[in-house]
Design a protein around this nucleic acid. Structure first.
Lengths: 202, 202
DNA sequence: CACGTTTTCTATCACTTGATAGAAAAGTAG
DNA sequence: CTACTTTTCTATCAAGTGATAGAAAACGTG
């Protein structure tokens, strides 16, 4: 017996990509549930019916968009490849870069956020996110250990635990909560002070 | 000319509260948009029509629920009053308490999260959140300064900037992202190490 | 009880939204 | 051109969903 699968035609890969791109934009604009299939189709230059020819249900499209988001849109802002030689600089680049990006593209981080909540009830999504977080956690740990070897970060720190703290810090930061003015100004500087290998003169 | 306002009857304050409580539960369960007015009314033991007698639009109800959430449900888990004498202990109590609470009641923090995003386009909501964040930020700063006076926290730290970091850290933590197993185990311990007044023997 | 007010319900609307059926159009091969 | 496949469109459905009108019930007061 044939599985209750979608019709098997090869489809146009180009149209698929166009729909995923339009879906990403719509979800960044209106959120995961707020994005309307009609808008997405319209933005891709087709009708809803044709959208459903490529993605039988909205959930299929959402899945494809989130997968695309993780693989294409999420790694870039992290700058995991930046300045590998200088771990502290890489850390700073990542944090300030993300803060700026979160101001410019808040919808992107709202999408990441909705994804995290959705992952609680979706094993596939959770697995994808876990892989991504693992890579991120590992990269930050590597940066910290490199800086420890250079004597620029306290050698007694548990780099894994600190990496976790930094990830939490960044995840909270990109939600851009309404903190008192200037609360973020000395953040990066202060993080460096906390991690620094030697006590300042005081 | 009379303003286009709802009918002026006094209403029952008890029913209002019952609706807000039911709304809070429904939104914790299904999210801000996912909560259905029919479900909320049913949970309060009335029909949708009666709900609209108390809250002309769903948005009015949402507003009331969020206001209630900030004032009643949000301050409690922070334990801002805990162990005021010992700032570091208060900090630890807050962080571990929030981690546990976030595991037990994730929906509460999803609601807080949706609120933060909604506040971007709603000045009233943003103002309410800002007041709450300001109090939180101030309390953490007070704890840190108290611990500095006791000589248990490095005196060279900018307590405001560190308070911001801790708030970001907590906001990220309560989203419970799928980090590698055990990533959070030594978090609190490591935070203490970072803040500690003296370098360990190494 | 009688009368006015407040509260609640039944029934229904108006509209959105994801989804589908079936025809038409576009592409492909001989 | 013809026959077949792939893609797209028009038109429409079915299930919600917030909201309302208007009658009925409950309440309060003398």
């Amino acid at each position: 017996m044939t599985a209750k699968r979608a019709r098997p035609g090869p489809r146009s890969a180009r149209q698929r990509e166009r729909l995923i791109a339009a879906g990403y934009r719509a979800m960044v604009r209106s959120g995961l549930e707020g994005a309307r299939t009609r808008d997405i189709a319209g933005e891709a230059g087709i009708t809803v019916a044709t959208l459903h020819y490529y993605f039988p249900t909205k959930d299929d499209l959402v899945r494809a968009v989130l997968e695309h988001t993780i693989q294409e849109q999420m790694l870039a802002p992290l700058r995991l490849d930046a300045d590998w030689d200088d771990g502290l600089a890489a850390l700073e680049t990542m944090i300030t870069g993300l803060a700026r990006h979160a101001d410019a593209e808040p919808g992107h981080y709202r999408l990441l956020n909705e994804m995290t909540w959705a992952a609680r009830e979706d094993a596939t999504l959770r697995a994808m996110l876990a892989v991504w977080h693992e890579g991120w956690h590992g990269a930050i740990g590597d940066w910290l250990r490199a800086a420890q070897r250079d004597g620029r970060v306290r050698s007694d720190l548990d780099t894994g635990a600190v990496a976790t703290m930094i990830i939490y810090l960044v995840l909270g930061m990109v939600t851009r909560p309404p903190l008192p003015a200037g609360a973020e100004d000395r953040l990066s500087e202060e993080l460096h002070r906390l991690l620094a290998a030697f006590e300042p003169k005081d």
